[in-house]
Computed example of a mutant assay.
Amino acid sequence: MTVTLTDRPIEKVREEVIDQLIMNYSHGQISLAAFERRLDIANQTDDHHLLVKQVEDLTLQVDESYTESKNESLGTHYTPGNAVEQENITNILSSNKRIGKWDVPKELKCFSLLGNLVLDFSEARFTHPSVRIKLMSLLSDDTIYVPDNVNVIIRTSNVLGSTNTKLEGKTNPEAPTVIIEGLCMLASTNVKMKRTVKQRFVEFAEQLKQMLG
């Protein structure tokens, strides 16, 4: 017996609709303009019927090959490994950047004094389901880039400082969680994404389209 559409979890319906949009665009069934227009609606609406309307005229359904490609490209980046449990990063009158592909420890303790710290998790490999970042930032400027498919919890305190957050996306219980806590004194901490959820889906769709020739 089929469950009534409006009784289904909205995020599950959204995921299915976006998958079908990507599948049909990558196979040349709809134009880029139509794909992006429908993708915007699918990401923004919480109306079950409006969601389903975006794919009601599309015939191609998601197959096993698509699912494998999606898991490889848009996975949660969580892979059990041998990263250290704890790592310390100290910046005093200096700059420190952790970018590219790197193994994330379970806990990062970061101290910045008159410095600049950049932690970029966009391509990092999460070796623990939960990562804790403990900040002590004094007269410094820190930036943390997180992927759109991880969960983020921020618990910082500010004394004549600021914590600026620019994130989007939904909570995923299967994804790694990044917990940011600590003290910002006369300092600025920025937490943001390098790419939006929409950009991630468009990039994946373009990759599939190129693979299919």
Rank of each mutant, 00 (worst) to 15 (best):
N43R: 03
T196S: 13
S95L: 15
S188Q: 13
N190M: 04
M193D: 13
V202A: 07
K109A: 07
L58V: 03
L186V: 14
L21N: 01
S112F: 07
N149R: 13
Y66L: 06
G213W: 08
R155F: 03
E174M: 05
E15R: 06
I179Q: 08
H27M: 08
S130P: 11
V17D: 02
P9W: 15
S140G: 06
N43S: 10
D7W: 14
N164D: 15
Q20R: 10
T79I: 15
V3E: 13
T79G: 07
L138M: 12
T59H: 09
L60P: 02
I144W: 05
G169M: 02
D63N: 03
L60F: 08
Q44S: 12
I179S: 05
F121Y: 11
I179A: 03
N151R: 01
V150R: 00
R8Q: 09
Q210I: 13
W102N: 02
A124G: 11
T196D: 05
E85T: 14
E174P: 04
I179D: 10
V52N: 07
D57F: 06
A205Q: 00
T165Y: 07
V13M: 09
V104H: 04
D7C: 09
L58F: 06
L160I: 10
E181V: 03
V146Y: 05
Q29E: 07
H48L: 01
L114R: 00
G81K: 15
A34R: 11
P173D: 14
V197L: 08
R200D: 08
A83C: 09
Q44M: 03
K134W: 08
N190E: 13
V178P: 00
D46H: 07
N43M: 09
T196K: 06
F111C: 07
A83K: 04
H48D: 10
Y66V: 03
L21Q: 02
S162T: 15
T45R: 04
L74H: 12
K70A: 01
V62L: 03
I144R: 00
G169A: 08
E11N: 13
L117F: 14
V118A: 02
T127N: 15
D47T: 07
R37E: 08
E206P: 00
V55F: 04
E36H: 10
D142C: 12
H27S: 11
E168N: 10
S94W: 12
T76P: 13
T90C: 12
L58Q: 05
A175T: 00
Q20F: 08
S94L: 03
C184V: 13
F35Y: 03
N149K: 10
E15P: 02
L212T: 06
E16H: 09
F111I: 10
P147G: 07
T127K: 14
S157A: 09
T171I: 00
G28I: 04
Y25R: 01
E203C: 04
I180A: 01
V197M: 09
V84D: 13
K53H: 11
T79M: 14
I179R: 03
L58C: 02
A33V: 12
S69M: 13
N158Q: 08
S26Q: 02
T189M: 11
L183M: 14
S122N: 12
L160V: 11
Q86D: 14
